[in-house]
Design a protein around this nucleic acid. Structure first.
Length: 383
DNA sequence: CGTCCACGTCTAC
DNA sequence: TAGACCTGGACGG
């Protein structure tokens, strides 16, 4: 399920599984993939992953000879081996993920493979059934994508609020939330969950929803640095955390003097685009291995997307928008709204755990949703 | 068997 | 604003 949280979980997965592993030889691409060859080969290298929004970057680092000096510099055949690191930037399309298996258990649709130097070797695979995913050797974060909603919160927020005059914000809010120039990491299920929580009609003009939001940071915004660090202690992520810390530190210094604190502020839309994805990261933090992943927890976490009793419409780009209540004024004209109804004699699903109940409860009484139609114009409280 | 649908971009009329 | 790009699971006849 590749939206921002899944991409980040993928990077945690790679670092956890491969952090202490040495890889060797060339990087292999499947025949069928149309993505570029990765011309990197080295007798011994390590792999580190980083995520930003809906991208993951793998950094391949040749091992600097602990014993044999310059073992990566030159092979015995005389061919020059890789000396420098290589970054590969991945996008996951609709079905991409990483897996780490034995060579014998190579997954179907494994399109890029990194081999370990172990006896029966293992393989880190980029698996992508539909092949909508892509990678770029010697790549950088895609230039037209904005800051990460999860780990560059302050600059992401600033980027949106300082560009509200952009014509992009003429569109309905639900469609703008998929614009990766401003919401890098948000995808189809996240936009539904986020708008649902604020009871914002999906087809209200984005600028109308956003222009009332405060430019300064709320109290909760500042605390976010603490939350993220706690979240990430499970698997330490030096790079991401370092970047984040620096950013917050700088911004916090400049903001502190200027901002007077509000006590209890309802999280606004921009903040939910940060915190809701972080919830998903917490869910998946334990045993991330997508192939044998159990989606029970995730499904019960969903309050709107694909949930019984919710409505859905195709937006102007043909994507299904899940919502509850009023679709809003800019809803596609011809659009026929569907609604999922309970199946006849539903056996309450085999799992039958408390989690399933939890979903029904949240559907019936969304406690933190104001039953009044509030956020039409502005989600956050205004002074 | 067939049709519809899917967590996302891309580029071409 | 369409399509193109892909495989496969769910569901209907």
């Amino acid at each position: 399920m590749p939206e921002g949280p899944e991409l980040h979980l993928a990077s945690l997965f790679v670092n956890r599984m491969c952090g202490a592993v040495v890889f060797t030889g060339p990087v292999q691409k499947s025949e069928v993939s149309k993505n570029p060859e990765v011309s990197f080969s080295c007798p011994a290298y390590t792999i580190i992953a980083t995520s930003r929004g809906k991208e993951v970057r793998l950094t391949l680092t040749p091992q600097k000879s602990d014993s044999a000096q310059g073992r990566c510099r030159r092979g015995k055949t005389g061919q020059v081996n890789q000396v420098q690191t290589m970054d590969i930037v991945f996008r996951f399309g609709m079905s991409g993920f990483f897996r780490f298996t034995t060579e014998a258990e190579l997954p179907k649709h494994s399109h890029l493979r990194f081999y370990t130097n172990e006896k029966p070797c293992r393989v880190l695979s980029f698996v992508d059934t539909r092949r909508f995913g892509s990678w770029q050797p010697n790549g950088t974060w895609q230039l037209n994508r904005g800051p990460c909603v999860m780990f560059e919160y302050l600059s992401y927020r600033e980027n949106v609020l300082s560009h509200l005059s952009d014509r992009a914000f003429d569109r309905p809010i639900c469609e703008v939330l998929l614009n990766q120039k401003y919401f890098n990491g948000i995808g189809n299920y996240l936009r539904a969950e986020i708008l649902f929580r604020l009871n914002i009609p999906p087809f209200v003009k984005a600028r109308t929803v956003l222009e009332g939001l405060q430019t300064h940071l709320s109290d909760e915004d500042r605390k976010s640095v603490v939350k993220v660090e706690v979240t990430d202690t499970e698997v330490k992520e030096e790079v991401t955390n370092t970047e984040f810390k620096e950013e917050v530190t700088n911004r916090e210094i400049s903001d502190r003097a200027a901002v007077k604190e509000d006590e209890s502020e309802t999280p606004d839309l921009l903040r939910l685009c940060h915190t809701v994805p972080l919830e998903v990261i917490k869910l998946g933090g334990k045993g991330y291995d997508p192939e044998k992943m159990d989606y029970t927890d995730f499904k019960s976490w969903l309050q709107c997307y694909c949930v019984e009793g919710m409505k859905s419409v195709r937006d102007h780009n043909g994507r299904t928008m899940w919502f509850k209540g009023d679709p809003g004024p800019m809803a596609p004209k011809d659009a026929k709204t569907k609604m999922i109804v309970k199946k006849e004699d539903d056996h309450d699903y085999k799992g039958g755990k408390k989690v399933k109940k939890a979903r029904s409860e949240s559907t019936m009484k969304p406690k933190y949703i104001k039953e009044k139609e509030v956020p039409q114009r502005r989600a956050g409280r205004r002074k």
